[in-house]
């Protein structure tokens, strides 16, 4: 295995900003519940980890998945905004969802991939207010969740307004993210 000292440099050398969701879609059957009777077509979600929790967003809301790019801090914005990233000439905001959802106490300072574990990714979400990235600890892949089996979000208080509901598949719990509320 590569010497961990060089890992960050290698990661940067092979930095490709536009790994797209397509690759993840191919993984979908492996993750999806085997043998489930498909009476309705389950919706596809992208599942990712924030700390110990697993979140999911509709695949249609995902524009692309990026390796963590250089992030430039922006003064005078909310704590959960990490800054802006340059995606092929577009200057898009990156949000720290863990801070937004109060999963951590202190805001983290991120200026680029070297500040984070290798598995970290930025998930670029489509949003009518303007596309934006969210920093996630790890992308699990695509999960199929039947819409009829989604559960409403338990009342967890004002901080968790961004939770749209819960989904279960293969014994795992997925917290469905309300993208607009999460970015607001």
């Amino acid at each position: 295995m590569a010497n961990p000292r060089f890992e960050a440099q290698l990661a940067r050398f092979f930095y490709r900003p536009d790994e797209d969701v397509g690759a993840w879609l191919e993984l979908a059957p492996e993750i999806a519940e085997a043998g489930e009777v498909a009476e309705e077509l389950p919706e596809e979600f992208l599942a990712f980890e924030l700390g110990a929790e697993v979140y999911a967003v509709p695949i249609g809301a995902v524009r692309e998945i990026l390796k963590v790019p250089a992030i430039t801090g922006v003064p005078r914005v909310a704590e959960h905004v990490l800054g802006v990233m340059n995606v092929r000439g577009e200057m898009l905001p990156v949000y720290d969802l863990k801070q937004r959802l109060r999963l951590v106490d202190a805001p983290q300072r991120v200026t680029g991939p070297t500040d984070l574990p290798r598995e970290s990714r930025v998930v670029l979400l489509k949003d009518p207010e303007g596309d934006a990235g969210i920093l996630v600890d790890r992308v699990q892949g695509v999960v199929r969740l039947p819409l009829s089996k989604l559960e409403p979000a338990p009342n967890l208080g004002a901080d968790r307004r961004a939770v749209a509901g819960l989904g279960r598949a293969g014994g795992n719990l997925y917290i469905l993210l309300d993208v607009e509320a999460a970015l607001a």
Binding site: V74, P75, V77, V84, P93, G130, A132, L183
Partner: peptide, 12 residues
Amino acid sequence: KPLGGRLKGVPG
């Protein structure tokens, strides 16, 4: 280039 989406109005 303008800042994307919700960062548009940052003063300064």
